[in-house]
Design a protein around this nucleic acid. Structure first.
Lengths: 359, 359
DNA sequence: GCGGAAATTTGAATCGATCCAACAAAAATG
DNA sequence: CATTTTTGTTGGATCGATTCAAATTTCCGC
């Protein structure tokens, strides 16, 4: 007597149901995907058999191959996955992406390429209809890899000046000017810049040549905006120290140390991200330097946290949610064309900036 | 002469490359998936052909069907997708899940079942190896739907008392006791409870029968913990108003109105979530009721925001990140067994609680 | 130059569905 | 009752890869 084999490993397939119910696999398929076209009697019979056999329903893996569309968009970054839930900027952006996806019922697949070895694999094997890329550090490798998939994709943030890829960014020059003008009009004349990365992973003071050869045009443009506007107010921009950081605590603090250990201290700091701006405020406050009485700080981004910190941050606000929404829609309604959009920014004045101290 | 058809819609398949390179598709496949076993010369030739034809690499859709594993875990909720990026509790949980996924290189697919019609479809067609379910409102439908997929899944948070499904929760009774004891030891004797939902979507005062028939055993257990401990201190728990909310601003405020418009005002509020606790603090403060001088408030969850609010929140902290990590590992290392884990909680005393006011 | 081991390559089978042209049966029409 | 129309069902083709046993080629030592 053959022993009963318990719990057959192989899951039930649609074909098994069809055979058991005595119908063709075509009909069995219709029972699940277009029930209205199959005769009620047959439909119920097949459903009953499926139920009895413990059928899990048509496997999406099978359907996918036929259908071609995953109905999900991938969001890629070179940061670890937790970045999406912890970074304030990413979170607001994701909220915008979520909105657009919710509206069409699409899902979101988070893909991290933090791990160098698995970077390629994760991008290559992601089951998505397109990608939205958070191009931060190491973004160019991410873009190259994604391009190979030949799926629609959009690059966000500090873009490279590559006209062949779709991207959504903000008017960085205008943003820089807005920030600079605000401070200049408050009477400030001595500045320091906390800059995002210009290209290679490095931190430290930046020379004019390095600015000219910047890979990240976003960083370069903000800088250009700052300087153009300050020049109009007669500020000698060649004297302004620019410290390149990695947009995190350690290098930003190092930058502040470096800037404030110099001879002539600035009365205003132009930070290229709210994150750096908030780190700066904390650092200054901890050293008894009052913000904004002694030093004013302007951020860039407009993340919600900026309104909550103490003092609340003056910043250049990007329409982050809207950028996210548009990026998602670009993928969802992809029509084969490269699109490049530039969004406006606006100055949000809060309490981290004030009149330049006298003398 | 036949006209050249530009931009053939159909993307290049591996079989096209094989044919063009004059090798079998088996070999062509090996070139990409196990390059080391194909002769260097052939390998290079195939790669060159692929490059020339603009091949995007093996399509994961095809591979998936064969391989069977997606290498991604789905996280499902009945909230909109933005919930994952905006809710503080969800965010910490997702950070834990992210950690575990990063460690094994798995991806995360976010699945929302907010939309009733698409609820089923989204769960049914998600390309994942398993699910982690955030079981909040309407969680039972979500669980039922997921169960049908016959994939491993774990339910988080206020579990139903269904022993047949894997779940990770916290010791709600112990948490309730901890909160109650803390307040009782501070001398409080008049309490009010801001409760999470017990079952159906409703808000308002709760009767003892409703507690007994609670669907959400988590809510019931916290309540039991509160009451058991308070009884020990001689408090008549039958007099304690319990207001059921939806864990958001509107219903929580309504609860506070109702509680504070009664005759004898409580000196302490037991809130079943940090969210409600923070809303309570805000509401009380706005009405000139000082926290903790006039009324003490204890939350539940231990979200980071609690430490930042004013006054900082005393709460029962769950090991949220660890729960997330474990949930992810449960899916990643699924061994076919149902697991139910209960995690410990701890009292975190901050400034929202103080001695009961005299008199 | 030969036998046998090792290294490559082949091609059919498989993964699990959906689609669709062709056919069959039932219903409506003349 | 014969003919069209409508409604349902069938089974082969397809989606795009991977796998593996079998066939073939290459490599070695003698």
């Amino acid at each position: 007597m053959a022993p009963l084999v318990e719990g057959q490993a192989r899951p039930i397939r649609l074909a098994d149901i069809a055979k058991a119910a005595g119908v063709s696999h075509g009909t069995a398929s219709n029972v699940f995907s277009r029930p209205e076209i199959v005769r009620a009697e047959v439909r119920e019979r097949v459903k009953a058999v499926a139920e009895a056999m413990g059928y899990a329903g048509p496997d999406p893996k099978g359907r996918l191959l036929r259908a071609g569309k995953v109905n999900a968009i991938g969001v890629g970054t070179t940061e670890p996955l937790s970045y999406f839930f912890e970074d304030p900027f990413a979170r607001v952006m994701m909220a915008g992406i979520s909105e657009a996806c919710d509206a069409t019922g699409a899902g979101i697949a988070l893909v991290s390429a933090a791990n160098q070895e698995k970077l390629a694999w994760n991008i290559q094997s992601a089951l998505v209809d397109g990608f939205i890329l958070f191009c931060i550090e190491g973004g160019s490798r991410l873009v190259d890899l994604t391009r190979e998939r030949r799926l629609p994709f959009v690059a966000l943030e500090l873009g490279f000046h590559d006209e062949t890829i779709s991207a959504i960014g903000v008017d960085n020059v205008a943003g820089g000017r807005l920030a600079a003008r605000h401070l200049a009009e408050l009477g400030h004349r001595r500045f320091a810049v906390l800059s995002l990365t210009l290209g290679e992973d490095r931190t430290g003071f930046v020379t004019p040549e390095m600015v000219r050869s910047a890979v990240y045009t976003g960083t370069r443009d903000r800088l250009a905006g700052y300087f153009e506007e300050l020049s109009r107010f007669g500020v000698d921009t060649t004297q302004i120290p620019i410290f390149e950081t990695e947009n995190e605590q350690k290098s930003t603090r190092a930058g502040l140390e470096a800037i404030f250990s110099g001879g002539e201290r600035p009365t205003a700091i132009l930070a290229m991200s709210d994150r750096m701006a908030m780190i700066a405020i904390e650092w200054l406050t901890a050293r008894g330097i009052k913000v904004p009485q002694d030093v004013s700080v302007v951020g860039f981004d407009g993340v919600p946290d900026g309104a909550l910190c103490d003092p609340p941050l003056t910043t250049i606000a990007q329409p982050i949610t809207e950028i996210g929404r548009r990026a998602a829609r670009m993928i969802l309604d992809f029509d084969g064309t490269v699109r490049r959009e530039t969004m406006g920014v606006e100055l949000v004045v809060r309490a981290s900036t004030g009149p330049a101290p006298k003398g």
